[in-house]
């Protein structure tokens, strides 16, 4: 488990990081918390000539409010996300989901932005980010641009970020007053999700006024369960209404098979877990 040889740099600003990346071409890898990249390097599934460590870029850490938005720095650790009051207040789904990520060691090293840019469809934070219509702020040689979450996740382990760009921060609309739940199903506590369902709903006057549902590991990217969202609108969160909505969970999914779940079982799980996620969110 020894990586192939590579050069290592640790820039201290976003601009310096981008400059380093663009001069390295496509043969560089960005290191955030290292929870995915290091195993990949050690197993020699990748052998970049340069590793650009963002650990010293102070401006990429931390969480702040900007008007109607909550901004989470890409290098903020899961642990810091988890204990942040702003996240709990305005993005409960992010807090609840982060709590299910791996174990304390991983949550101290692993970063919010690292999980998202790694774009493993079994990664837990992708579905909430998609469901909450986040905007990804990326920096490249020609400055910064925003990418909507719907455009951001392209394929397995593939995002809309160019090789010479880095994710700087994630901007989330505030979901103040919404209730939320992340229903995670895995084989052992430290395993990846077989299926996960991220949902946040706004209940007003006993009815579901707005709903957001994202699915983990039901395709090459996180999936937005729009059919479920539509079915819920205006409905009282009864068992029957939730069941009917959850029945639409697999619309638009393209689940794969692996040792833990074949497609039919995975689709079945998506329905069951969507129902459970909604029931929990609507009653919390």
């Amino acid at each position: 488990m020894i990586p192939a040889e590579f050069d290592y740099v640790a820039p201290s600003t976003v601009e310096e990081a981008v400059r380093t990346l663009s001069s390295a071409g496509e043969d560089a890898k960005v290191l955030a918390g290292g929870q995915s990249l290091l195993p990949v390097l050690r197993m020699r599934l990748a052998d970049p000539s340069l590793v650009v460590d963002l650990g010293k870029v102070a401006e990429m850490r931390g969480i702040r409010e900007e008007g109607d938005e909550l901004v989470i720095g890409a290098m903020t650790s899961h642990h810091d996300v988890l204990r942040d009051d702003l996240v709990s207040e305005h993005a409960g789904l992010i807090a609840l989901t982060t709590r299910t990520v791996a174990d304390p060691q991983v949550r101290h090293r692993g970063t919010f932005g690292g999980s998202i840019t790694h774009a493993d469809p079994a990664g837990d934070l992708l579905a909430p980010v998609l469901a909450m219509d986040a905007e990804m702020v990326v920096a490249g040689p020609s400055g910064r641009r925003n990418i909507a979450a719907r455009e951001f996740f392209v394929d397995y382990f593939t995002t809309a970020i160019e090789p010479d760009e880095i994710l700087v921060e994630v901007r989330l609309p505030k979901y103040t007053g919404w209730s939320a739940h992340y229903e995670k199903f895995n084989r052992v506590a430290q395993a990846w999700s077989v299926v996960g369902v991220a949902t946040t709903v706004l209940v007003e006057g006993g009815k579901i006024a707005r709903a957001r549902v994202g699915l983990t590991n039901m395709g090459a990217t996180p999936i937005r369960a729009e059919g479920v969202e539509q079915a819920l609108l205006g409905a009282a969160p009864t068992e029957e209404a939730i069941r009917q909505a959850a029945a639409r969970a697999t619309e638009g999914t393209s689940a794969g098979s692996d040792a833990n779940a074949d497609v039919d079982y995975r689709e079945h799980l998506a329905e069951v877990l969507t129902g459970r996620a909604l029931a929990t969110a609507a009653s919390s």
Binding site: P39, M43, R187, V188, A189, Q190, A191, W192
Partner: peptide, 12 residues
């Protein structure tokens, strides 16, 4: 790897 060969921990 232990990502696929599931050894339980105290959590499980």
């Amino acid at each position: 790897t232990f990502a696929d060969y599931l050894v339980p921990s105290t959590m499980d």
